Amino acid sequence: MAREQGRKLIAQNRKARHDYHIEDTFEAGMVLQGTEVKALRAGRANLVDGFVDIERDEVWLHAVHIPEYAQGTWTNHAARRKRKLLLHRAEIEKIAQKTAQKGYTIIPLSLYFSDGRAKVEIALAKGKKSYDKRHSIAERQADREKQQALGRQLKGMDRV
């Protein structure tokens, strides 16, 4: 059987980029049980409430929902159990130093298979205030209007 190549996206936390300023991102491996891998290969996961915590120099992923595997038996996993993340020691120390500062948190951005191995992209982030969110929405809208105007101009529709 041929090995998987490339990156296959399973789940993405789109709301994270709206609610947080992303400072830095890291790719981490995950320690999973067999039925969790099968559920992920079926493309089922939810990162919305997920967060990452550091306990005794180990990084843990909490509250990520990987539903039970449908064909699993008594060996099935708990859907919202905490899962250990695999990172280099230097990365763990860097993350721990930043989260010790006020306002920083670690959130999962996406869950995917990279060359057949389950990976999670985590981000060191700082929460946005409501006025920051409004500002980013206004910026996005202005960019969209600018692109539309440019498109109309290139098509010759703006000539009077």
Rank of each mutant, 00 (worst) to 15 (best):
G151N: 06
E121A: 11
N76F: 13
A11C: 05
V120K: 08
K129F: 04
W74N: 05
V120I: 03
V48M: 10
V37Y: 09
R140P: 00
V64M: 03
D24W: 14
F113I: 00
D115V: 08
T105N: 05
H135V: 07
I106M: 11
R81M: 07
T73E: 11
K38D: 02
I137L: 15
N46C: 07
G29F: 00
L61N: 07
W60Y: 12
S130C: 07
L87C: 09
R56D: 14
A45R: 07
R80T: 06
Q97P: 01
E58R: 15
Q101F: 06
I107L: 09
S114Q: 15
H21M: 07
Q147M: 09
L47W: 05
L32Q: 02
I122G: 05
K15F: 13
K133L: 11
L154S: 03
K133C: 03
V120R: 06
R17V: 06
D158M: 06
A11L: 04
R17S: 09
D132R: 03
K155A: 08
H62F: 14
A45Q: 08
T73W: 12
Y112I: 02
A16V: 03
V59N: 01
K82F: 01
V160L: 14
L86M: 10
T73A: 13
L109F: 08
H65T: 11
K133F: 02
Q97I: 03
H88D: 06
F26E: 02
Q153L: 10
I95R: 04
G72S: 11
T73I: 10
L154C: 03
V64K: 07
M30P: 00
T73L: 11
F113E: 06
L87V: 07
Q153M: 13
I54L: 03
K129P: 00
R134C: 05
L87M: 09
L9N: 14
H65N: 15
K82M: 09
K155H: 05
K102R: 15
D143Y: 10
G6A: 08
I122W: 11
K38R: 09
V64A: 05
N13L: 04
K126S: 02
Q5L: 14
G127P: 01
V52A: 06
R44A: 04
M157Q: 13
K119H: 09
K98S: 14
K38W: 00
D132K: 03
V64T: 12
K38T: 01
Q97F: 09
V52G: 00
A28D: 05
L9G: 10
I122N: 10
L40D: 08
K155I: 04
A11P: 01
F26A: 00
K133R: 15
A142Y: 03
H62I: 03
D24M: 15
I10N: 05
Q33W: 04
R134L: 11
L40R: 12
Q97D: 04
E55Y: 11
A100S: 05
P108Q: 10
R140F: 07
Q71V: 06
Q147A: 13
R89D: 13
R41F: 06
A90T: 12
M157E: 12
I10R: 04
R56Y: 12
A125C: 05
D57L: 05
D143V: 02
Q148A: 12
D132G: 07
R134D: 00
A79K: 13
A118Y: 09
